[in-house]
Amino acid sequence: MNNYSLSVSGLTKVFGRRLIFRGIDLEITGPGIYGISGINGSGKSTFVKIIAGLLTPSKGAVEHKLNGKKAEDEELPGIIGLASPYLMLYDEFTAEENIDFFSKVRGGKFSSERMRNLFDYFGLTERKDDLLKTYSSGMKQRVKFIFALQHQPSLLILDEPVSNLDIAGKNQIYDMVRDYACEHVVIVASNEESDLALCSRVIYLGDYKNNGNGEGR
């Protein structure tokens, strides 16, 4: 296990003239589940995209550290795993081909045993050789979890993790998140009460429209 920490300072995002959030500070120094909440359009997805390095902030900085050393941009694919409903995988490939491709393109060590275990855990082993376009939305969501977890990221980001999932699927994800957070950092962006109940700390983005501090409500 890597000694991972995340530092967010003065994070501000503006789209055109519209302020999404301003002045978010956040320090995560150890394993656990951290929540990001807010009404629709409050910028939850924008926030997690900035954390994941997919968007650049208008102001402020995000720093990922491994064993006390700042991680460079090219190291981020190995550090971060993200699953969300807006993440799309390749429909013309099977689920296994998708995971295999993303592992290869990410580099690092690839464990076929871990991939098998994840397909088993999410109940997709029998369908792993089917093209992704034949999957239901709930099944696609599970493949996205495998995509996010295959490389055992130090930071797992889950945006609306239980959307498209049935009750059994939701409970399975909650178990997985609790288990994974024992040794890693998990950030959950959601409005669902049951998702936020997992979190030891929640940031409400609505409180960052001005200069407020919405932490730990």
Binding site: L54, D73, P77, Y86, L87, D91
Partner: peptide, 20 residues
């Protein structure tokens, strides 16, 4: 168009994408 660009951004460095 297919929205797969984000999965690629999460998995690959810019140099890898350009070279490929």
């Amino acid at each position: 168009e297919r929205g797969t660009v984000m999965a690629l951004q999460l998995s690959a460095t810019p140099e890898t994408v350009l070279s490929g």
